[in-house]
Amino acid sequence: MSRSELVFNKVNRLLELFMIIIFALLVLDVLFQVFSRYILGTSFTWTEEFARFSLIWMTILGAAYLNGKREHLSMDFLYQKFSDTNKRKASILIEVLVFLFALIIMVIGGLNLVYTTLHLEQLSGTLRIPLGYVYAIMPFSGFLIMCFSIYHISNIYKNKINN
């Protein structure tokens, strides 16, 4: 196993663990909200906001994770009709487009959003945490997607990825 494969596997394992933790916290948060509302007769406003932020983080990290594992949703009816050479070309083109999307929208746009919200000192409504910290998941996941795209392109050139 090459060094890049070891790093790739470790990053994916860390992402899995982090998403498991986020999901566990989300479940506990929602269970606590239900318990407090129906058993204690009181409702805590912070639980809804925490659940929303957890779901945002899990969704965006999940997109990066699935991109890394090449298990994201795709429609490949036309792709399957290509010859092997055209499949390789299409795969490289797709990875380049994914890389550019992650760079422009997620990293550059995400960093701009994080900077703006931190500079304006915007706080979340209930938890009173800076929204820039919540939005920081966007450039982080975009960076991961970019790294995964580079990894996939190198594997396509090495012919390790089945088209």
Results as ranks from 00 to 15, higher is better:
Leu111Gly: 03
Asn86Ser: 12
Leu118Cys: 06
Leu78Ser: 10
Ser83Pro: 05
Val107Lys: 01
Ile105Cys: 11
Ala102Thr: 00
Gly62Cys: 07
Ile129His: 07
Trp46Arg: 03
Leu103Glu: 05
Leu55Arg: 03
Leu66Glu: 06
Ser124Gly: 14
Gly109Lys: 02
His119Val: 09
Ile60Lys: 00
Ser124Asp: 11
Leu93Ile: 15
Phe77Gln: 12
Leu118Ser: 03
Asn67Gln: 13
Glu49Leu: 02
Phe50Pro: 00
Glu121Trp: 12
Met106Lys: 04
Tyr65Glu: 02
Leu111Tyr: 09
His119Cys: 07
Gly110Leu: 06
Glu48Met: 08
Gln80Glu: 10
Ile108Gly: 09
His119Lys: 14
Val107Asn: 04
Leu78Tyr: 06
Ser54Met: 03
Ser124Ala: 10
Thr59Glu: 09
Arg52Thr: 12
Val114Pro: 00
Phe50Ile: 07
Leu111Met: 12
Gly125Tyr: 10
Gly62Pro: 04
Ile94Asp: 08
Lys87Tyr: 10
Ile104Gly: 02
Lys81Gln: 14
Ala64Met: 04
Asn86Phe: 14
Tyr79Gly: 02
Ile92Val: 12
Leu61Pro: 00
Gln80Met: 12
Thr47Val: 08
Met58Cys: 12
Thr47Asp: 02
Arg128Lys: 15
Gly68Val: 06
Asn112Phe: 10
Glu95Trp: 00
Arg88Lys: 14
Thr126Val: 10
Trp57Cys: 03
Lys81Arg: 14
Ser83Lys: 07
Gly109Met: 08
Tyr79Phe: 15
Val96Cys: 09
Ala102Glu: 00
Ile104Asp: 03
Arg88Ala: 15
Phe99Leu: 07
Ser91Gln: 01
Ala63Glu: 04
Pro130Thr: 09
Val98Asp: 05
Thr116Ile: 11
Leu78Glu: 11
Ile94Thr: 14
His119Ile: 09
Gly62Ile: 01
Asn86Thr: 15
Arg52Glu: 14
Asp84Thr: 11
Glu49Arg: 01
Glu95Tyr: 02
Lys81Gly: 11
Ser91His: 00
Ile56Phe: 09
Gly62Leu: 04
Ser124Phe: 02
Ile94His: 04
Glu121Asp: 08
Gly110Gln: 02
Ala102Val: 00
Leu61Gly: 06
Ser91Ile: 00
Trp46Cys: 11
Glu48His: 13
Asp84Leu: 13
Val114Glu: 01
Tyr115Gly: 05
Leu55Gln: 10
Ile92Pro: 03
Lys69Cys: 02
Val98Tyr: 04
Leu103Ser: 07
Ile129Phe: 12
